[in-house]
Design a protein around this nucleic acid. Structure first.
Length: 221
DNA sequence: CCAGACGTTGTT
DNA sequence: GTCTGG
DNA sequence: CCAGACGTTGTT
DNA sequence: GTCTGG
């Protein structure tokens, strides 16, 4: 699955990769955890690709009291099209969650984290869903990350992995006019293992309080 | 009809 | 064991 | 996802 | 909001 990730590329590099048109105020992040507010990528009213600040953990628009409901950080890509919590956003409000890598854990003498990233070191656009919730303090934007079966590389570490959208699909992934579930499903596939790499990192990653560049350095697993 | 749920993961 | 906070 | 808390009363 | 269970 995907329960922790990194986003440390420069705003300029992220803008170049994702084709966003607004400014991004981002300090490097090496340990993004659920419940935190981070930039995701969607379209503005005129169809421009933009960074949007949103909170990780989805609250559907129909929820009255957000404390009553779980706020899922992941949604199964295989079933998101039909689940009440996700199907609206699946058809109408898909986003890209920019990341430079993500963490998964193996239980081995405790919990050993691994960092997974693209071999070419490009940022990745994880497939996500955005919802707008009207709370007592005004509108809150929240998101969840889609997961899918692991590819063979990832399967050594974990059974599930985040959906990673191929750059050539960014346009149609974000297209609010594309609501055909069959066509959406075609973009939701395990990312090919030949483009990815994984290595063990410091257990300091385990605490979300830690957030420094040392966390992404390889260690003996 | 109304009431209540609406999620994923890993682990057992 | 289970919930909350980050 | 993992780490850390998990409680009440009365007093300051 | 919408579906399921009773």
């Amino acid at each position: 699955m995907c329960g922790r990730y990194t986003l440390h590329g420069s705003p300029a590099a992220l803008k170049a990769h994702f084709g966003t048109t607004n400014e991004l105020d981002l300090k490097p992040r090496f340990n993004i955890a659920p419940s935190q507010t981070v930039p995701v990528i969607g379209l503005d009213a005129t169809g421009n690709r933009v960074f949007i600040e949103a909170r990780w953990g989805l609250i559907p628009s129909w929820v009255k009291d957000s404390a009553e409901l779980q706020q899922p950080i992941n949604a199964k890509a295989e079933t998101a099209a039909i689940k009440p919590m996700f199907r609206h956003a699946y058809r109408k409000s898909r986003i890209l969650v920019p990341a430079d890598g993500f963490y998964e854990w193996v239980v081995k003498n405790g919990k050993q984290p691994y960092l997974i990233r693209l071999k070419d070191n490009e940022p990745m656009g994880m497939g996500g869903l955005l919802e707008h919730w009207q709370g007592p303090e005004g509108e809150v934007k929240t998101f969840t990350i889609l997961t899918i079966n692991a590819n063979p590389l990832m399967a050594k570490i974990h059974e599930r992995m985040p959906v990673i959208i191929r750059p050539e699909h960014y346009g149609s992934w974000l297209d609010k006019g594309l609501t055909d579930v069959i066509k959406i499903q075609e973009m939701v596939q395990p990312y090919p293992e030949r483009f990815m790499e994984a290595y063990p990192v410091s257990r300091a990653v385990n605490s979300p309080a830690h957030d420094s560049k040392e966390l992404i350095e390889a260690v003996e697993g």
